[in-house]
């Protein structure tokens, strides 16, 4: 141990130009940090941050407000329940019941395929992850899927599902050529849109489970499989739900895959019961909005607005669900989280 310290000469108080020195401290004000003591650049930065935040809020409110005004103006309950008709006369062209069903159906198929694959992958990466090179390859694989534009995924899906062995997923022409467009094929490609989100949320949740919780389970003589099934998966339930809700929002909002792989038709294919519908083509709210907007055939802007407003409500609803799930999950686990919970 050191015997003694060399004698220390105290430094004179630091003097900074522009700062008042000496004198009694201001009496009335509590010694809180005041912006008036900040550097000019810091003050400018502070106001820019405020401005940026307010701008984002304004844009969001603007979109919702505009869509609400336009949409509510033309939205009638009958539009939600009547089938669309191809008719030049707008009073006879019906509603968007079929696209609404199409959106729900496609979202359910997509998330039903994506969730088990994403969760299994995340569990493998976090709990096993050996050999390391394979974990890295899988990680980049998911990054590639996440980064691929949806139109590229759609074209890739079209080529893939037109192969003979996928004939059961859509239907064949008389010469044996596979059509490749159906709810099943579009849903399979849509699952790739949701997969990275569910994967990321699950992995994050698993990584947040402390090592000693796993060890507590192993320490009770439990196998790895039992630990994953009974301890880890229940722990990350809310993370999985969050990721799934986010992914559903992405699927519901995607257009490219609907146009290329679902046919973007007005009506569902009513032949052959449920499986017939799944093998048939259809459309969603996104393709309906596109087709009816001035960018598409463009002769039914009112209906496009109404449908777009419904779509917006669905996606916003999913986002609120994400927030609620995350907060509830955090409460159930006794963890305090920020209000932003979500992603």
């Amino acid at each position: 141990m050191a015997t003694s310290m060399p004698p220390r000469t105290p430094l004179p108080p630091l003097r900074v130009p522009g700062q008042p020195t000496g004198g009694p401290p201001p009496k009335k004000r509590r010694a809180n940090e005041s912006i008036s003591t900040w550097r000019l650049t810091d003050r400018i930065g502070y106001f820019l941050m405020w401005a940026a935040g307010l701008l984002v809020v304004a844009i969001g409110l603007g979109i919702v407000g505009f869509m609400a005004i336009k949409g509510l103006q033309y939205l009638r309950p009958v539009l939600l329940t009547s089938h669309p008709q191809a008719d030049l006369d707008q009073s006879k062209s019906g509603g968007f019941f079929d696209p609404l069903v199409g959106t729900v159906l496609l979202t359910v198929i997509g998330i039903a395929i994506a969730t088990p694959i994403a969760v299994a992958t995340a569990v493998w990466i976090v709990e096993y992850g050996r050999p390391t090179w394979l974990a890295r390859v899988i990680d980049s694989g998911i990054e590639i899927i996440a980064g691929t534009p949806d139109i590229v995924l759609a074209l890739f899906g079209l080529v893939l599902f037109q192969q003979g062995i996928f004939g059961w997923m859509s239907f064949r022409a008389e010469d044996g050529a596979v059509f490749g467009r159906s709810f099943l094929t579009a849903g399979a490609m849509m699952s790739l849109i949701a997969l990275p989100m569910v994967f990321a949320a699950t992995r994050e949740g698993l990584q947040a489970v402390p090592a000693h919780v796993r060890e507590a389970s192993y320490g009770l003589g439990k196998t790895r499989a039992a630990t994953i099934r009974r301890v880890l998966l229940p722990s990350v339930k809310s993370n999985i739900s969050t990721g799934a809700a986010l992914g559903m929002g992405r699927i519901a909002g995607d257009t490219a895959i609907v146009v290329v792989l679902l046919g973007a038709s007005l009506r569902l294919d009513p032949e052959g019961g449920i499986f017939g519908i799944l093998q048939g083509t259809g459309g969603t709210l996104t393709s309906y909005v596109y087709n009816n907007s001035p960018a598409g055939e463009g002769n039914a802007a009112q209906k496009a607005y109404a449908a777009a407003f419904v779509l917006l409500l669905i996606v916003i609803g999913l986002n609120f669900a994400v927030d609620a799930i995350a907060r509830r999950g955090a409460r159930a686990n006794g963890i305090e989280t920020s209000r932003l919970g979500g992603s």
Binding site: L14, V16, G18, Q19, P25, A31, E33, S34, T37, W38
Partner: peptide
Amino acid sequence: MITNDERE
């Protein structure tokens, strides 16, 4: 510049 803390 100095913070209030330092000044005090």
